[in-house]
Simulated scan of single mutants.
Amino acid sequence: MIEAIIFDFGDVFIDLNKQAIDTEFRKLGLTSWHDDLDILNKKYEIGKIEEIEFLKGFQKHLPNAELDEIKEAWNTILGNFPLYRLEFLQMISSKYRLFLLSNTDHTHIEKFELQEGQTFARDFYSCFEKVYFSYEIGLRKPDENAFKFVINNHNLNPRKTLFIDDKKENTDIAEKLGLHVWNIKPGIEDVIQLFDKKIIS
């Protein structure tokens, strides 16, 4: 019997446009994703650096790009957040304990709230008992400590908790910790099909 559900954010609720971000950075002159950019991204996602340091780190590879252009390109990954997904979440919020656990950064969350509007964002956040963003808690998936942080903070029983994420590396760790998992496939599956998956009733 599932009592709690921990959701990922990107490609579960808000669609991610990975092609758009790749296209926009190529326009700015980035020919390939460098290892130091991956390190930079992960540091920003756990709040180890501020936005300005993050953007300047990109600028080292894009000397002709302005910081606001880099920020705009970075935010193009954020696609649509269909209203029906929010409505689905609102429908189940009275039946289960809901949590959000997302690898994300301040820039993307600021953009999401601006793009969808404060009312929409507030309605979304209010569906959850608690929202956890990696840049605020200093932990990111698939680090098992990120999962333990949520589980321990709310005294969750892993055997009665479902974790939904689009990345298999994340659901694999959650499963190892004893949680039920759904490794959702973006573009093929939708979170509103949750009850069709027979994971939950």
Rank of each mutant, 00 (worst) to 15 (best):
L114K: 13
E169K: 13
L114I: 12
F120A: 11
P142Q: 10
F128T: 03
D166T: 00
F147N: 07
D166V: 01
I164Q: 00
G138R: 06
D166Q: 04
N155G: 10
N170K: 02
F124W: 07
Q115T: 15
G117A: 11
T119G: 02
T161Y: 04
N145Y: 03
D143R: 02
R159K: 14
T161H: 06
Q118A: 13
E136W: 00
K148T: 14
E144Q: 11
A146Y: 04
F124S: 04
I164R: 00
E144V: 05
R159P: 00
E113Q: 13
G117H: 09
F120L: 13
S134Q: 03
S134D: 06
N153I: 01
Y135K: 03
R140L: 10
K167A: 12
K130C: 06
I151Q: 05
I164L: 03
K168V: 12
Y125T: 09
K111H: 14
R159V: 07
F133R: 06
F147Q: 05
N153S: 15
R140C: 08
I164T: 02
E116D: 09
N152M: 09
N170T: 02
S134M: 01
N155D: 11
E144I: 05
Q118N: 11
F124Y: 08
A146P: 06
E144P: 10
V150C: 07
F120N: 08
F133I: 04
E116V: 08
R122D: 14
A146D: 10
L162E: 02
R140Y: 10
A146K: 00
K130F: 02
T161E: 06
H154G: 07
F112Y: 10
N145A: 08
I137A: 06
F149T: 06
I151W: 00
N157G: 04
E169Q: 12
E129I: 08
N152Q: 15
N157C: 12
L114R: 13
N145V: 02
C127Y: 04
G138H: 05
A121F: 11
N155W: 00
T119A: 15
D143P: 01
R122T: 14
A121S: 15
L162A: 02
N152S: 12
I151N: 01
D166G: 06
D165W: 04
I137V: 14
G117E: 11
H154Q: 08
I137W: 03
E169M: 13
F133Q: 07
L139F: 08
E116W: 10
K141P: 01
E136A: 07
K160C: 02
D143G: 02
K111V: 11
L156T: 12
N170M: 04
V131P: 01
N157D: 12
S126P: 09
Y132Q: 05
I151L: 12
S126G: 04
F147L: 14
Y135D: 08
K130W: 02
N145M: 08
E136Q: 14
Y135I: 04
K141G: 06
T119F: 13
E169S: 13
L162T: 03
K168W: 15
N170V: 02
T161V: 06
L114S: 15
E169I: 12
F163S: 03
V150M: 05
S126D: 15
D165G: 07
